[in-house]
Nucleic acid binder design. Structure first.
Lengths: 226, 226
DNA sequence: AGCTGTGAATGACTTCACAGCA
DNA sequence: TGCTGTGAAGTCATTCACAGCT
């Protein structure tokens, strides 16, 4: 967490929801819908209507009172806000199970992120083909980042190697890191890190599972507001 | 200030950090450390000391003033709070790239989550071996969940199939779902869902990348000390 | 009439700061 | 003395509620 002085125009919590709205709008567009109300969008995104309006108002107002938001226009605006007008080249460090899966994951390319390289230190892995890419040695990182203008790196190595991988990415010029290793990375201020610890997600579920009101019984459903 | 005895004893935000503390404590234990101060633990976890103390105080106080927390004891307490005293059997629905990677991912088992089955609807995938498991047909879900006492399901199917997969999991008796599909799942109240949308994570990074103070010219990595 | 945009109210989470114990 | 535990203050996020546009 770099504590840099910044004017945070849009709250972090709102930023995290914009991609979800974007996703929902694409679905609406695919269905041929031309407008959508905050209430409908909220329903789709699993949040409430006031939040949708407030979130969207953070980058100017685009809705029409009495009607709602124009789907096409809102997609354009969100794309611009999210920096999705151009593709983002990414590199993956670590060609194990997870790195390999990420490299062949279609969900990235579909949404504007192209994996331009996957690297590993293990000579046994270098040279393998994964999802249209050949695994390169981690020493090629500098060259690759420079050649492709990579700004985003994905760390998919074992915990013990994660800091080293991050250091290399930063040295190569990468300024945003998506970290799958269960480690707190130490990076220079100005470098963004997002952690995705898959086991932590399960642990949070287990926490709630362990203390559900009905103990170990099956569900006694009570109404919860959505 | 516990005037209203709510069901929510521990704030969500704190719960999300407990697994991280747990992870750090295991590292400390491995190094042979017997005690740790809130400040040291905070440093490792990437948060601040007051937060650590407050978080830990939510389930009773275990620290010794003037000394800190006893590592072994705190691990035990966290394990209990997080429901990690027993293993959690999980099933994965979807044997594509992501599902396969998750099935062979060591990080789960190491932290108390055992993948007891991976299922798919595609006959071409059924029967394949993945990380010590044989892919089963999705129709076997009920049987598997009942036989193994599965409470946690992992959805790793394409978006169009996600709701169906979730419905099946819920029908089979699963009460917590980790959803990797970029879709808002509709589940009965009482069923917990956590979403992990990998592309959204990248989009959030892209958002910040797009509006970094130094504009689009990257590689002007200013060296700021951390 | 319907729906957005937004100040104001509420609520949640974080940080401060210090009393109190080992 | 050193460090925890915790009220109180502060910050940030969510929700309400309604004025105001179409």
């Amino acid at each position: 967490m770099a504590a840099a002085p910044r004017r945070r125009a849009i709250p972090d919590a709102a930023v995290a929801r914009l991609p979800v709205y974007h996703r929902c709008l694409l679905d609406l567009q695919a269905e041929g819908r031309t407008t959508v109300s905050s209430e409908q969008l909220a329903e789709m995104a699993g949040v409430n209507a006031a939040k949708v309006r407030k979130d969207l108002s953070h980058f100017g107002s685009y809705g029409t009172r009495g009607v709602g938001y124009e789907v096409d226009q809102l997609i354009i605006d969100l794309r611009r806000e999210l920096g999705l007008e151009h593709d983002w080249p990414c590199v993956i460090v670590g060609a194990g199970n997870l790195g390999s899966a990420l490299a062949s994951f279609n969900g990235f390319r579909e949404r504007g992120f192209t994996v331009v390289g996957i690297l590993d230190v293990d000579p046994a892995k270098v040279g393998r083909r994964i999802g249209g890419l050949v695994v390169r040695h981690q020493d090629d990182l500098d060259e690759l980042v420079a050649a492709e203008g990579v700004a985003i790196g994905i760390v998919a190595v074992p915990p013990a190697a994660a800091q080293e991988a991050a250091d290399r990415l930063v040295a190569a010029g990468v300024t945003s890191i998506l970290n799958f290793a269960p480690t707190v990375l130490d990076v220079p201020a100005g470098v963004h890190v997002r952690d995705v610890d898959l086991a932590v997600e399960l642990q949070i579920l287990a926490f709630h599972e362990e203390r559900r009101p009905d103990g170990r019984n099956r569900r006694v459903v009570e109404r919860v507001r959505s």
